[in-house]
């Protein structure tokens, strides 16, 4: 199944949760903030929200800035 993560097309397992997606990308859920189809998903909900074909996922964190 195809989803768009940070603007890139990625294959994920059908029925995967957001937590599964992070795990597949080897990302620590405590170190990123997840936006799923423009809606922020809080950490406790990452395991219960499942992704669907074509979903847009943004994974952000803090970088250097002024």
């Amino acid at each position: 199944m195809d989803v768009v993560i940070n603007g890139e097309h990625k294959r994920v397992t059908p029925g995967a949760s957001l937590l599964d997606v992070l795990s597949q990308l080897e990302l620590d859920p405590r170190a990123v903030v997840v936006e799923h189809n423009r809606r922020i998903v809080r950490r406790p909900a990452l395991g219960v929200v499942t992704v669907n074909e074509g979903d847009a996922i943004e994974l952000v964190h803090f970088v250097g800035g002024g």
Binding site: N6, V32, L59, V60, H61, F62
Partner: peptide, 19 residues
């Protein structure tokens, strides 16, 4: 100390979080 919000680099070969 100020920080900016940006996309995580998915290939993770480059910069990591300032944290």
């Amino acid at each position: 100390v100020t920080v900016a919000v940006r996309r995580v680099n998915l290939d993770r070969s480059k910069e990591s979080s300032v944290l």
